[in-house]
Amino acid sequence: MSSSPLVETKLPGIPVRHGKVRDVYDFGDRLLLVATDRISAFDWILPTGIPDKGRVLTQISKFWFDRLNVPHHLLRLDAKLLPLPDGTDVEGLEGRSMVVRKSEVVPIECVARGYLAGSGWKEYQESQSVCGIKLPAGLVNGSKLPEPIFTPATKADEGHDENISFERMCEEVGEDLATELRQRTLEIYQSAADFARGKGIVIADTKFEFGQAEGELILIDEVLTPDSSRFWPEDLYSPGQEQPSFDKQFVRNWLESTDWDKNSPPPELPAEIVAQTRAKYIDAFQRLTEQPFRWE
C-alpha cells in the first residue's frame, strides 16, 4: 500500500537548495540528496505528488551506481549516520536519501540519444539534424538511430535546458573535458541500454551529470531513472508514433488533454493518474532489478 507523498522536507539549521524534485542539504564535506515525491512537467512543479516516486528514483539510481563500472558520488543511502537535527522524520527519509561526495558540477547536461524523440524529433523535423549532428533522411518519431549520438545541453536554473552543439560545449568547458564527457556518456548509455533491453525496456535517451572531485571526474545526481531518461516497453515499441512509456510522459499527456495554458499554476492530478503514474515508476524498477519494491 502506498504512503502519502512527501513533497517537502525540513532539516532546520542545515543549508539547503531545493530543486524540482530533490532537496540538497549541505553537511560540510558531504551532501544529503533527498528525492521527494514532487513531479514536474512543462517547467512547473505540479501541486500533486506521486507517492514513493522519490524512493523509486533513489533505488533505481543505487542499482545503476552499483552496476556501472564508473566513478560516482554515492557513498551510502542511510541518512541516519549524519548529524541530523533533533526531531527529524528519519522514517520519511528512508529509501529516498543519498549521502554523496561533494564535487564541482560540470555545467553541461550530457545527453545520449539512441532513438529520435522529444526535442530531438522536433529539431530533426526542422533541420534533419540534432545539435548539429546530421541524421539520415526518412526517420520518424521514435526511430532507432544508426548509432547513439551525444547531444549536450546547457543547464538552466529556470526554464528549459538549451540543446547546444559539441563545438559550443568545447567553448564552455574546454575540448579535452568535452571529449572525455562525450566518450563516457556514450559508453555508459550503451552499456545500460544493452542491459535494459534484456529486461524488456528500451532506454531511448538519457541525461547524465558529472562533477569533478579531487581531480577525478565522477557521475553525480540521479542516473538512468524514469525522470532522467525515456523508458519504453520493448514489446510495445513501434516507430512512427508516441511510444508508451514508464516515465512522466504519461502525466504530460494528461496535462495536454486539459485546458491548462502552461502559463498559470497547473491543475491537481486526478487520483487515477497519480495511481497509474506510481505504478509505471514501480514497474520500471521491478523490471530492471527483478526485485520487489519493498514499499508496496
Rank of each mutant, 00 (worst) to 15 (best):
L57E: 05
R17V: 15
T58C: 15
K102Q: 08
L116F: 11
R38L: 13
V21D: 11
R55H: 07
D23A: 00
I108H: 05
A79Y: 08
V34F: 13
L32G: 08
S129G: 09
T58E: 08
L75A: 01
R55W: 15
M98T: 00
R113Q: 05
H18T: 03
Q128P: 00
I39K: 15
D23G: 03
P71F: 12
L135P: 11
V99K: 04
H73K: 07
I149L: 06
V106W: 13
P83I: 11
P146M: 11
V21F: 15
D37V: 04
G19Q: 11
K62Y: 07
S97I: 01
I149R: 02
E91R: 06
Y25G: 05
I149N: 03
L74K: 01
R76T: 15
F65L: 04
G95W: 06
T58K: 05
F27Y: 14
Y25R: 00
D52G: 01
C110S: 12
T151N: 09
M98R: 02
T88H: 12
I108C: 04
L84T: 04
F63L: 01
G120Y: 13
D86V: 10
S143A: 12
V106P: 12
E91D: 08
A137V: 04
L145P: 06
I60D: 02
P148I: 04
P71C: 05
T151E: 12
E123A: 10
G49E: 02
D37S: 03
S103M: 09
D66G: 11
T151K: 08
I50K: 02
A112F: 14
Y115V: 04
Q128F: 03
N69V: 10
K62I: 13
